[in-house]
């Protein structure tokens, strides 16, 4: 059962989930906001691909537009909605993100259509390759490679640049970071832009799997990102990556081991396992001694 195909599939699923989770946790780290609108950033990437295909953009431009659209929407939601309620209660921030999510869903519902739209992707997305006797979708290998590159870049950014230092400091002690002269709005905007970037990249692969996008496309990836981050540990990107891969592994194991009659309950099992896990270890897999200070 543990063959190359299983390993590659798990790695690619885990990579996708890790990307999703890191994007969510970057914002959580600084604002302590569980961003319910995060899934909609992926949805926006999907619609960007759909629209640029209509105008006939080349595939590389399409991909850039998709990521840029996610980043832009992420950035705009921060400015318009999150910034004014930032200093208010945690519940206000959470409910705001919920409202932003509903807002974005209904914008595309009104502006495009409630029905799913086909998303054309470059041919190489649907090609398969044969490695060691296993037939693998090229897409899965691409996810792994892309994730590796993106995470390496992110790690460089967080460790080696002053912006990264400021973001890590802000995730730890927000007010003190401002006392160093780091503008609050600047780090928060940066976090939303990076979060949008990761959502955009993940969004390309997400809609690439189903080949279509609809107003509710964001719901499933949001849930995965939630669960992966809480499992991994909400306070560090490393935890999110670990959580993403663990989630991917768990998903594939359940897919193989559950009897056919129970397979439709897979999600219920997944979430039940996660809830059980959290009951015993609320801090997640990776513990960090961060304080729970909120942005003030």
């Amino acid at each position: 059962m543990i063959n190359l195909e299983f390993v590659i599939n798990t790695l690619s699923l885990g990579s996708l989930y890790a990307l999703l989770a890191v994007g969510l946790v970057l914002v959580y780290g600084i604002l302590k906001l569980v961003n319910f609108a995060y899934g909609e950033y992926l949805m926006v990437a999907g619609y960007a691909i759909y629209l640029s295909a209509i105008v006939g953009a080349p595939w590389w431009a399409t991909l850039i537009i998709a990521v840029a659209a996610s980043m832009l929407v992420s950035f705009l939601t921060e400015i318009a909605a999150f910034r004014p309620v930032r200093t208010k209660s945690m519940d206000a921030l959470l409910v705001t993100s919920f409202a932003v999510s509903i807002f974005l869903q209904n914008v595309v519902l009104l502006a495009v259509s409630p029905r799913a739209r086909a998303v054309p992707l470059p041919d190489f997305f649907s090609k398969t390759v044969v490695i060691g006797g296993a037939v693998l979708p090229l897409r899965n290998l691409l996810i792994i490679a892309t994730t590796a590159v993106v995470l390496a870049l992110l790690s460089f950014l967080m460790k080696k640049t002053v912006l990264g230092m400021a973001m890590r400091a802000a995730a730890d002690k927000f007010t003190t970071t401002r006392l160093m002269g780091v503008p609050a709005n600047f780090v928060i905007s940066a976090a939303f832009l990076i979060s949008g970037f990761l959502a955009g990249v993940a969004g390309i692969f997400w809609v690439g799997r189903s080949g279509s996008v609809d107003p509710l496309t964001g719901a499933a990836p949001l849930l995965i990102a939630f669960i992966a981050t809480v499992m991994g540990g909400m306070n560090s990107p490393i935890g999110a990556v670990v959580g993403g891969f663990v989630y991917g592994l768990l998903f594939n194991i359940l897919s193989i081991t559950l009897p056919a009659s129970m397979i439709s309950y897979r999600d219920a099992f997944m979430f039940a396992i996660v809830v059980l896990f959290l009951l015993f270890r609320p801090e997640g897999i990776i513990r960090r001694g961060y304080t729970e200070e909120r942005v003030g």
């Binding site: 909400m234 959290l278 609320p282």
Partner: peptide, 14 residues
């Protein structure tokens, strides 16, 4: 806090 919110949310999905 956040873990509590997400746990209840995950339970809704179940």
């Amino acid at each position: 806090d956040a873990v509590g919110v997400i746990t209840l949310f995950a339970t809704l999905i179940v």
